[in-house]
């Protein structure tokens, strides 16, 4: 379940994920232990609610980012990650490409240009797959 939760966190803007991702995962794990003790129905409801609100939250955070309302720590965390010398250059570039494509997609959606938005969305999906492969050393 932790793996699935961390996978869903990839839907969030990079800065947000770096600023809150570990903390959110730790809280999720503690809550999961508690809800599991309360019975199967409570646990399943918890998992469903967590998944839906996480996806909805990711959409809201991209809108916040597009509106320029990022918490300074998000920006700092993203910048630290970009300048971290232990991260290979191709991973940094791939991350930047994903961020750019998401910005372009958000921009296209805001202009009701859904054809272009779909194009950027597919390109972002491809880039994200490539990034994941690079990060897990499969490329």
């Amino acid at each position: 379940m932790k793996r699935l939760y961390r996978a869903l966190l990839w839907l969030f803007p990079p800065g947000y994920r770096l600023a809150f991702g570990d903390e959110m995962t730790a809280v999720f794990e503690a809550l999961a232990r508690d809800r599991r003790r309360r019975g199967k129905a409570v646990y399943l409801e918890f998992l469903l609610t967590e998944s839906i609100t996480l996806i909805a939250g990711a959409v809201l955070e991209w809108i916040e980012k597009a509106a320029g309302r990022e918490y300074p720590a998000d920006v700092a965390a993203a910048r630290r990650a970009e300048t971290d010398v232990s991260v290979p250059a191709e991973i940094i570039e791939a991350r930047q490409r994903v961020t750019t494509l998401v910005s372009l997609m958000t921009d296209a959606i805001s202009r009701y240009d859904y054809k272009r938005a779909r194009f950027y969305s597919l390109a972002e999906e491809r880039e994200r797959r490539r990034l994941r492969a690079l990060e897990t050393g499969q490329a």
């Binding site: 809150f20 959110m24 809280v27 996480l54 939250g57 916040e64 918490y71 720590a73």
Partner: peptide
């Protein structure tokens, strides 16, 4: 949920 909590914390920060 964690998504709702941290979304709200983000806005409050």
């Amino acid at each position: 949920s964690t998504g709702t909590l941290y979304g709200a914390l983000h806005r409050l920060l």
